[in-house]
């Protein structure tokens, strides 16, 4: 019973999405893109997307890379000191 309810819900959601795809102007999926009537605005949205998309990856990646480098140099330091002791 539980599985069939889930299937019905998923089918309804898929049908609604398909309907929205058939009538994009009525759906108006993006609240801001519909205002991009001229080339300048479209370029602005494109540049904004280009700035914003890679940035989270760059920020998190940079912090992770910094931590990895610090960790690696600390491990090498431990190896060096233990080698010199033995």
């Amino acid at each position: 019973m539980k599985t069939s309810l889930k299937t019905i819900t998923q089918s309804l959601a898929a049908a609604l999405l398909a309907l929205a795809g058939l009538a994009p102007r009525a759906a108006e999926a993006c609240a801001v893109c519909i205002n991009a009537r001229d080339d300048g605005t479209q370029l602005g949205f494109l540049l904004g997307t280009l700035i914003m998309t890679p940035l989270p990856f760059l920020v998190v990646g940079s912090i992770a890379f910094y931590l990895w480098r610090r960790s690696r140099s600390a491990e090498l330091e431990v190896i060096r000191s233990s080698s010199s002791q033995s």
Partner: peptide
């Protein structure tokens, strides 16, 4: 240092958001 790095990371996103909004307004003017 770790706390400051995380703070700076979130502030980077704040400035990126403002730059993005400014770029859209400027190019459409």
């Amino acid at each position: 240092v770790l706390g400051m790095l995380l703070f700076v990371g979130s502030e980077t996103m704040l400035f990126a958001g403002m730059i993005s909004a400014f770029t859209i307004v400027r190019t459409s003017a």
